[in-house]
Simulated assay, not measured.
Amino acid sequence: MKKPKITVIGGGTGIPVILNSLRHEDVEITAIVTVADDGGSSGELRSVMQLTPPGDLRNVLVAMSDMPKFYEKIFQYRFQDGDGALSGHPLGNLIIAGIAEMQGSTYNAMQILTKFFHVTGKIYPASENPLTLHAVFKDGHEVVGESNIANYQGMIDHVYVTNTYNEEEPSASRKVVDAIMNSDMIVLGPGSLYTSILPNLVIPEIKQALLETKAEVAYVCNIMTQHGETEHFTDADHVAVLNRHLGVDVIDSVLVNIEKVPQDYMNSNKFDEYLVQVEHDFNGLRQLAKRVISSNFLHLKNGGAFHHGDSVVEELMNLVRIKHL
């Protein structure tokens, strides 16, 4: 019996948690990672070298690799303030950027690094060109650039992407569409709705593939609302935004955390983008998706509220086994 094929789409700090647990299962994994990040180290490197930003790819690479902890510490080491041009850059970003320059693209760099670090599965940037994220707000105002979106006070109506350095329509990286079409399950998130998940889904080829694939499409809903993106959102609001951007109700299953985050727990200084826990609207969810899976997916760590990767993956594996029979 062939292994189930699971493709995880997103970016940020959310999907590495799922991928790290998923790589211990008997499945074929593909990660499709956003390339619209224009802040911090990734933003600097993409601006200077006109390459797809390496930061989210770096975190996914670490999550899917069996590299020893010491190697991981080296790869994730961030140069300190005062280190001149290197300040704030993780060593891994510089390695990815260097190999991308040597091999002609970040896509090629990731294929080499997946072998070098014994990665379980495949890692593809969503596009082989850096993309610019545009957010159009309910009042008609448009903000350009992912790192600028949270600074505007208002509710986002929709987002779209453009190629950063040419006028062509954004396209998916090679093999991305095939991965989606041949999957048994597509996992969206967890991660920032407008800045980690949707920048992938609004690439026309990826959007079309999601509409046509026979795969189970599962969405791992965020635990907390996010400043500048999802204030006052319920879990059903998150799903409604995804479906609206895709044009039809694509989400088959929604995974929702029902464990309460302790009121005094959140470290607002460290995780200032998080506001309050996402409220539940189960009636709304049942109208938007075929299945709602609610459980304790909460993992409290370092002052933040994260998904417990093993608990989420246990539910995903139950779904994919049914689909794969």
Results as ranks from 00 to 15, higher is better:
177 V>N: 00
85 A>I: 15
44 E>W: 11
105 S>M: 07
105 S>V: 11
215 A>C: 11
118 H>I: 06
86 L>K: 05
293 I>T: 05
223 I>L: 11
198 L>S: 10
5 K>M: 04
272 D>C: 09
103 Q>P: 00
213 T>Q: 07
170 P>Q: 04
197 I>D: 03
274 Y>H: 15
136 V>Y: 02
80 Q>P: 03
118 H>L: 07
322 I>H: 11
311 S>H: 14
59 N>I: 03
101 E>I: 00
117 F>Y: 15
85 A>Q: 14
59 N>E: 12
164 T>F: 00
243 N>M: 06
241 V>L: 04
10 G>C: 01
165 Y>S: 13
199 P>Y: 07
209 A>Q: 03
110 M>Y: 06
252 D>T: 12
115 K>V: 09
270 K>C: 07
257 N>H: 01
191 G>V: 04
177 V>K: 00
148 N>K: 14
129 N>S: 15
294 S>T: 13
296 N>F: 08
217 V>Q: 01
48 V>L: 14
151 N>R: 14
7 T>E: 06
284 G>Y: 03
240 A>C: 02
43 G>S: 12
1 M>C: 12
104 G>C: 10
208 Q>Y: 13
120 T>I: 13
315 E>T: 02
103 Q>T: 15
15 I>Y: 02
135 A>G: 01
145 G>S: 05
138 K>W: 05
270 K>T: 15
98 G>Y: 13
202 V>P: 02
307 H>A: 07
175 K>W: 10
325 L>A: 13
39 G>C: 07
200 N>W: 07
16 P>I: 10
166 N>Y: 12
109 A>T: 09
233 F>Q: 05
102 M>C: 10
167 E>W: 09
243 N>P: 10
194 Y>T: 02
229 E>W: 06
39 G>T: 06
238 H>N: 12
138 K>S: 14
91 L>R: 02
223 I>A: 09
132 T>K: 04
311 S>R: 15
166 N>A: 09
299 H>G: 04
317 M>G: 03
191 G>C: 06
237 D>Y: 09
64 M>W: 07
7 T>C: 10
107 Y>V: 11
321 R>W: 08
12 G>F: 12
120 T>A: 13
235 D>G: 11
16 P>G: 06
95 I>S: 00
113 L>D: 00
90 P>W: 08
111 Q>P: 02
184 D>F: 01
143 V>R: 09
189 G>D: 03
254 V>Y: 05
119 V>T: 08
97 A>S: 15
221 C>G: 07
78 R>C: 12
255 L>Y: 03
190 P>A: 08
144 V>L: 12
17 V>F: 06
216 E>R: 12
16 P>V: 05
234 T>N: 10
320 V>D: 03
3 K>I: 00
196 S>H: 05
94 L>W: 10
213 T>H: 08
216 E>L: 15
293 I>R: 04
264 D>S: 11
38 D>G: 05
171 S>K: 15
239 V>N: 01
268 S>P: 05
128 E>Y: 02
237 D>G: 03
290 K>P: 01
33 V>M: 00
95 I>A: 01
265 Y>Q: 08
113 L>V: 05
56 D>P: 06
134 H>W: 12
14 G>F: 01
313 V>K: 02
158 H>Q: 14
317 M>H: 04
323 K>V: 13
115 K>W: 00
306 F>M: 11
64 M>E: 10
88 G>V: 11
12 G>C: 08
153 Q>Y: 13
